[in-house]
Simulated assay, not measured.
Amino acid sequence: MVTLTEKITNKNHWFQSFYQTIQLYARRLLLTISSEHFTKTHLQEELCRYKVWLHNQTGRNWQHNYDLSQISESCLNMNIFHHSIRFHALFKFSQISHSTQLHLKNVYSCLAVCMFVAAAGSYVHVVTRLFQGGLLSLLCSLGMMVWLSMTPHNSETEKNRLAILAGFAFFTGVGLGPAMDFVITINPSVIVTAFLGTSIIFICFTLSALYAKRRSYLYLGGTLMSGLSILFLVSVLNMCFGSAILFKAHMYMGLVIMCGFVLFDTQLIIEKAENGDKDYVWHCVDLFLDFVTIFRKLMILLAMNEKDKNKEKK
């Protein structure tokens, strides 16, 4: 039998899942509005980079109308055992320009700062209780995100936008407080496990996007948005039925979709940076929400599994 306390707790998680889906929709809407269309010049840039690569490999100058059959057999059939292994090449992304690599450093630096600020927001809710997470923190987080999107990116507004980003990260961390309260009652170590698992997932999918061919994962955009639509409908239905199985299915499906968004957002940021969009503050928002969403879903799933194991032992 399910007690009244468990019913209330499950209902709160269903409402939080519904609010989080709305937040993802708002983020994707703002992303669509701020995105730029790509032109045919990208193909020409790729051809130029490939021509430089061919010149470095064969020592010959290649024209735009080059014939791939002219590449020597010694270049195509290189014996790797005659060459020394250079591990520093693992950290070189030849398909990404130097300016874009510097832009990514700024993005991930802001992401690291947002993690600390969000941790401080969660600490305020869990320990000090000065500010409680809930609908108010969600509205404040959405308000900060809209404010940030409406503030133009330039040198004069850079400090203001960083401050808005810090406020957004703080309220997002406060919003994680209720979920953390639920997890702490079961097993506090789940929070650490979920954070480490989220970090591993995020790093692996980020490296996959960085090492993969440019724009190879951008086709996932339509599929991922369709997945978000399904998540929204499942959240609405679950608010009416209150099914634990439907809730778990929603969490697992959301976890898979957000892993796909890490691939999509990373390559989209690279393409925007290659086309002159150096708004690292707004790009940080995309990756930060991906990380937080994966962390929240993974933490709740681990806590629910731990709770089921405790019931079986009793």
Rank of each mutant, 00 (worst) to 15 (best):
V126F: 06
T128Y: 04
Q132N: 10
G133H: 05
G133L: 00
G133P: 12
L135G: 03
S137L: 02
S137W: 02
S137C: 04
L138Q: 04
L139G: 12
C140P: 08
L142D: 09
G143N: 05
M145D: 01
W147E: 00
M150C: 09
N154K: 12
S155H: 13
S155Q: 15
E156H: 12
E158P: 02
R161E: 00
R161K: 15
R161F: 03
R161L: 03
L162P: 01
I164C: 15
A166D: 04
G167L: 08
A169C: 14
A169Y: 00
F171I: 02
F171Q: 05
T172W: 04
G173K: 13
G175D: 08
G175F: 04
G175Q: 06
A179M: 15
A179E: 04
A179N: 11
M180Y: 11
M180N: 06
V190E: 05
V192G: 05
T193Y: 01
A194M: 06
F195N: 02
L196Y: 11
L196K: 13
L196Q: 08
G197F: 07
I201R: 05
A209S: 15
A209C: 07
A209P: 04
Y211Q: 15
K213L: 11
R215D: 00
R215C: 05
S216R: 12
L218W: 01
G221P: 03
L224T: 09
M225I: 09
M225L: 14
S226M: 12
S226I: 13
S226T: 14
S229Y: 13
S229K: 05
I230M: 11
F232A: 14
F232S: 15
L233W: 09
V234L: 15
V234W: 10
S235P: 11
V236A: 14
N238S: 10
M239F: 09
M239G: 09
M239C: 10
C240S: 11
C240P: 02
C240Q: 13
A244E: 10
A244F: 12
I245T: 13
F247P: 06
K248S: 08
A249D: 02
Y252F: 14
M253N: 10
G254M: 01
V256N: 00
G260E: 01
F261K: 06
L263W: 04
L263V: 04
L263H: 01
F264V: 02
T266D: 02
Q267M: 03
L268P: 01
L268T: 14
